[in-house]
Write a protein that binds this DNA or RNA. Structure first.
Length: 291
DNA sequence: AGCCAGGCCCTCC
DNA sequence: GGAGGGCCTGGC
């Protein structure tokens, strides 16, 4: 089925930008698991082509379109965040890169798993959680698993998660699952809450600090002003905005201070700026200079 | 061998 | 509020 779309959108770059961890690529095709479906998709000149299972494509199409945020006016957003030539260079380098609108629950657990971890192993962790405790899915010869619901994951012991290789994150995942499953935190309700309230709610969860919370807020809870500061953003800002990264006493800004600075500097779509800065700096490598 | 990976949490100042 | 250290695991 085709989702018609002729605007700016780079499907491969977006799905491989480290926002989501379950997409796998073969040539121009990407296969992932969203909305309890295996989805196989590619970009064409006419739009986004996809097939899915087990649900009907007509049922999944609007959800998948929403997931890809095709209704966001990307050019207008980029115009808003292009406040200098430094962010401007990153915007030019990755045309069509979008921020996803993911499922909050999986997004939350994924980024709890991201703590002091690398993208490759995060992907393995998330896949192992699904294979271990989620429903099996099939699309043609492809076999994957749905991401387990809060109720399903809440029944899993920390020890079982450690056996999967989650390490110290196992305790956080198990703890967060129990809280969400118990109804003590309604993730979807946070889409209606304002940024500060949603941030405060998320950071009550174990394993969720400012960085993880901002990832979940940006990538699944509609808070486009969210600005997660990780090691890559830390490097990007210090290298590209050095004059703004020193306090009046001469000491460097802490990460806690970098976020509000960036939100004020880039404005209401700071999260989009974050994604372009992240992409730009991450692809330079650990010690790479800008070139 | 040692450091690093999309941090969080706890302790101490 | 801010600095420092520990933490599972795997790769280079």
């Amino acid at each position: 089925m085709l989702i018609p779309f002729t605007g700016p959108f780079d499907l491969i770059t977006t799905l491989e930008s480290g926002q989501a961890f379950r997409w796998r690529r073969e040539e121009e095709w990407l296969t992932g698991v969203v909305f309890d479906n295996i989805i196989r998709t590619r970009r064409t000149a006419e739009g986004v082509e996809f097939e899915c299972a087990p649900d009907d494509e007509t049922a999944i199409a609007p959800l998948f379109r929403d997931y890809l945020r095709l209704d966001d006016d990307l050019e207008a957003i980029c115009d808003r965040i292009r406040v200098d030539d430094r962010i401007g260079a990153a915007l030019r380098r990755y045309p069509g890169l979008r921020v996803l609108r993911q499922e909050p629950w999986e997004c939350l657990i994924s980024f709890i798993c991201s703590a002091n971890n690398n993208v490759k192993r995060i992907s393995v962790n998330v896949e192992d959680i699904a294979d271990g405790f989620g429903r099996p899915l099939a699309l043609r010869e492809c076999r994957r698993s749905a991401f387990p619901s809060p109720a399903e994951l809440a029944q899993v012991e920390e020890g079982e998660l450690r056996e999967l290789g989650l390490g110290f994150r196992a305790k956080y995942v198990a703890g967060a699952a129990r809280i969400v499953a118990a109804g003590d935190l309604d993730l979807f309700a946070l889409r209606e809450a304002d940024y500060d309230e949603a941030l405060a709610a998320l950071t009550t969860l174990p394993g969720v600090g400012d960085k993880v919370a901002n990832c979940v807020l940006l990538m699944s809870l509609d808070k486009r002003e969210a600005f997660p500061v990780d090691v890559w953003i830390d490097r990007a800002l210090r290298e590209w905005y050095p004059e703004h990264m020193v306090r009046v006493d001469g000491k460097p800004l802490t990460r806690a201070a970098m976020r509000p600075w960036a939100q004020a500097y880039f404005g209401e779509f700071a999260g989009y700026a974050n994604q372009y800065l992240f992409q730009g700096r991450r692809l330079l490598g650990r010690r790479g200079d800008q070139s």
